[in-house]
Design a protein around this nucleic acid. Structure first.
Length: 562
RNA sequence: UGGGGCGUCGGCAAGUGGUAAGCCACCAGGUUUUGAUCCUGGCAUUCGUAGGUUCGAAUCCUGCCGCCCCAGCCA
């Protein structure tokens, strides 16, 4: 019973269970993840990846990574490589090698010849505009193309001529002969092959000057690979009759079942490859892997663990209903993982100097701090302590009521992993800005409660002498509208870009153990959040950290309310 | 308004005729050398809506309402 609770459960799995009960597909479950290499993968693709590879894993089947590379003008090898890296990083294995729809171009061509011979496809000379006019509208039927009744022989010659490069782009089109009056527009004699002269395909080079369309290619690729369950998003539901038409008309050996689910919509983020491309090309972000991007590579660079993205995909479920997932759902997955796995450290992002006047000048001591408060197995580390330290400006007030559990003039606070100090003096510059604090420490409070009084506040600190300088990048949501791309009151989603999505702090001071932090390894900077050294920008000579995510902050919430 | 799909708590989502799981968020307490974590408790007499069938309906039937997708030689 208790094992059942966490088992993913969704309508696709129910469907597969039913298929298995019926003995369909000889009990095989074979899925595929079919990205087009025309951009980087995003969080929405992660949902599909987890679904498809997860199905294969749980049903002891197989999931192919297949590049849907039928439109060379928009595609690039760079994207092929990035996609492979992302899928792998997410923790999935596509076996021997990735597949490419272009692997099947020869067979696809033969299938097209078969369609022509059967009288199920014809070469059409209408140009793009005429084709659109002949297609009709949503409420009016289309008209048959004047070339619809060409003979098989003529079609064969023409199609061969298309392949041989005898016609310029747009001059001819191979079309399926289905039904121009169908209420489903996808069935109004859809295009099968179009001409693309002089284009170099990233996989097949200049071998072809005609390229097959998605609807035609996808179902046949699935069939060729022996896919049993072809899972795609809802907008392809209208294409399913066409998917089935090609397979039935060509009498393929296998006939995979297309199943549609609803795509992910994440609030304050973009899950559209086209719009992510726009962000990159217009320079609104630093690139596809900008840590603010909802791309897999961006999230990786930001420090999101792969496991937390997988957990997220599990938590949101799989249905056919439109959805709008709150960012807090994703954030919860990230914090759960990071809280459990990341070692603690101390870092001061907005330094305020403190001199501990009763601490011997020139003295230094190594204090010991646990790397994780709940997990002893993570061990301890040494933190140097000295007469001069930094604390965060936000942790001091000259006056405050007792709800403020930090350092206040003439009051005490605990320095985390160290002593209790009292603030005796506040030093200001000519402009009245606080530039330094003079404090005294109680040397009986190391690892011990102070005598005769309670000190409830605890703040973090770094030794001024030993701390290392660093730049820290604080990220906020990239957009300030929950659905930036579906706001119909504006004509460009870019107006919803959050101007404060990146705040760079250049004067941060980190505890020295962080100097050798491995890029991408996430630490919790206690009381601040989770951070990792940036894989691209950080070096030992110039440390640059990304804030992966803040800690849950109920104090900020209380402050805001009052 | 032709075709396709979807409507269960603020956001997700189980539920498949036997009397509304779970998660996130939120609220109230407790522990705590991180205002973190953790722990305890609260959070849908009701399933878009109106009828009908039934001993019994979120589940079956009918009507209505709302939202999403489709007129690329993109995927």
């Amino acid at each position: 019973m208790s094992e059942e609770i966490n088992k993913p459960n969704n309508f696709i799995r129910n469907l597969i269970d039913a298929d298995l009960d019926k003995g369909k597909n000889e009990g095989r479950v074979h899925t595929r993840f079919p990205p087009e290499p025309n951009g980087y993968l995003h969080i929405g693709h992660a949902k599909s990846i987890c679904l498809n590879f997860g199905l294969a894993r749980d049903y002891k089947g197989q999931c192919n990574l297949r590049f849907d590379d039928t439109n060379p003008q928009k595609e690039d090898e760079e994207f092929v490589d990035a996609i492979k890296e992302d899928v792998q990083w997410l923790g999935f294995d596509w076996g021997e090698q990735p597949f490419f729809a272009s692997d099947y171009f020869d067979r696809l061509y033969d299938f097209a010849v078969q369609l022509i011979k059967q009288g199920d496809a014809y070469v059409c000379d209408l140009n793009a505009e005429e084709t659109r006019e002949y297609r009709g509208t949503l409420t009016e039927p289309g008209k048959n193309s004047p070339h619809r009744d060409r003979t098989v022989e003529e079609n064969l010659v023409l199609f061969d001529g298309m392949r041989a490069g005898q016609f310029p782009d747009g001059a001819k089109l191979l079309r399926a002969k289905i039904n121009m009056a169908s209420p489903n527009i996808n069935l109004r004699d859809p295009a099968i092959y179009r001409i693309r002269q002089g284009v170099i395909h990233h996989q097949t080079g200049d071998k072809w000057c005609i390229y097959p369309m998605y609807d035609y290619t996808h179902c046949l690729s699935d069939a060729i690979e022996g896919v049993t369950h072809s899972v795609c998003t809802l907008e392809f539901e209208d294409h399913r009759p066409l998917y089935n038409w090609f397979l039935e008309t060509l009498k393929t050996e296998h006939h995979p079942q297309q199943i549609e689910f609803s795509r992910l919509n994440l609030q304050y983020a973009i899950t559209s490859k086209r719009k992510l491309t726009q962000l990159v090309e217009q320079g609104a972000v630093d690139g596809w892997d900008d840590p603010r991007m909802s791309t897999i590579s961006g999230m990786r660079r930001r420090g999101y663990p792969a496991a937390s993205i997988r957990e997220f995909c599990e938590r949101i479920g799989v249905t056919k209903a439109d959805n709008s997932i709150e960012m807090s759902t994703l954030e919860s997955c990230i914090r759960d993982n990071l809280n459990e796995n990341s070692p603690r450290a101390m870092a001061v992002l907005d330094p305020l100097k403190i001199v501990i006047t009763n601490y011997p000048e020139g003295q230094t001591e190594d204090l010991t701090a646990p790397n994780h408060p709940q997990q002893e197995a993570m061990g301890t580390r040494n933190i140097p302590f000295g007469r001069e330290i930094y604390i965060d400006r936000a942790d001091f007030k000259e006056e405050a009521n007792n709800k403020f559990k930090r350092l206040v003039k003439d009051k005490e606070v605990r320095l985390r992993n160290a002593y209790v100090i009292r603030c005796d003096d506040v030093i200001k510059n000519a402009d009245g800005e606080i530039i330094e604090l003079r404090c005294s420490y109680d040397d009986a409070t190391l690892g011990a409660a102070p005598e005769g009084r309670k000190v409830k506040g605890v703040i973090h600190w770094v030794s001024a002498e030993h701390g290392v300088k660093a730049e820290v990048r604080l990220y906020d949501r990239l957009f300030n509208h929950p659905q930036p791309d579906s706001d119909k009151t504006v004509d460009d989603f870019m107006v919803h870009l959050n101007p404060d999505s990146l705040a760079t702090r250049t004067e941060c001071v980190l505890e020295p153990s962080l100097l050798t932090a491995e890029a991408g390894k996430v630490y919790q900077f206690e009381r601040e959040g989770y951070f990792c050294a940036d894989a691209k920008l950080s070096s030992e000579s110039k440390l640059v950290f990304n804030r992966t995510i803040t800690l849950r902050d109920t104090w900020a919430k209380i402050e805001q309310q009052s």
